[in-house]
């Protein structure tokens, strides 16, 4: 899952996939902006069937690849 998320981020931001790690703070580092976040929400929905509520839009859930993967994992296990 992490690889898929990393690939998505790299592709949509024209960034080398090796230039950031799982724990890189993607928004703090300026890799992702508002548009990136909106695109990511769409991507998580289409790729993993995850619907993100506004209240879940927090750094704890979206700050890094690791956090996004954890968030998706939690949502998926809740759904099942």
């Amino acid at each position: 899952m992490k690889d898929k998320i990393k690939e998505f981020i790299a592709e949509t931001t024209f960034t080398d996939v090796n230039s950031f790690n799982d724990d890189t703070m993607i928004f703090d580092e300026g890799i992702f902006d508002s548009m990136g976040l909106l695109g990511l929400i769409n991507f998580l929905e289409s790729e993993f069937g995850i619907v993100t509520d506004d209240t879940e839009l927090q750094e704890e859930n979206f700050g890094s690849v690791e956090r996004i993967a954890d968030f998706v994992g939690r949502k998926m296990s809740l759904a099942s």
Binding site: M35, L37, L38, G39, I41, N42, L57, Q58, E59, F62
Partner: peptide, 25 residues
């Protein structure tokens, strides 16, 4: 929330009621 802002569109209907939805990209 220390994330970039995500925008909503708010419609104020003629009767004064409102509806707000998150805007897809």
């Amino acid at each position: 929330k220390n994330l970039p802002p995500v925008f909503h569109v708010t419609v104020i209907f003629a009767d004064g009621s409102q509806k707000s939805e998150r805007l897809p990209m």
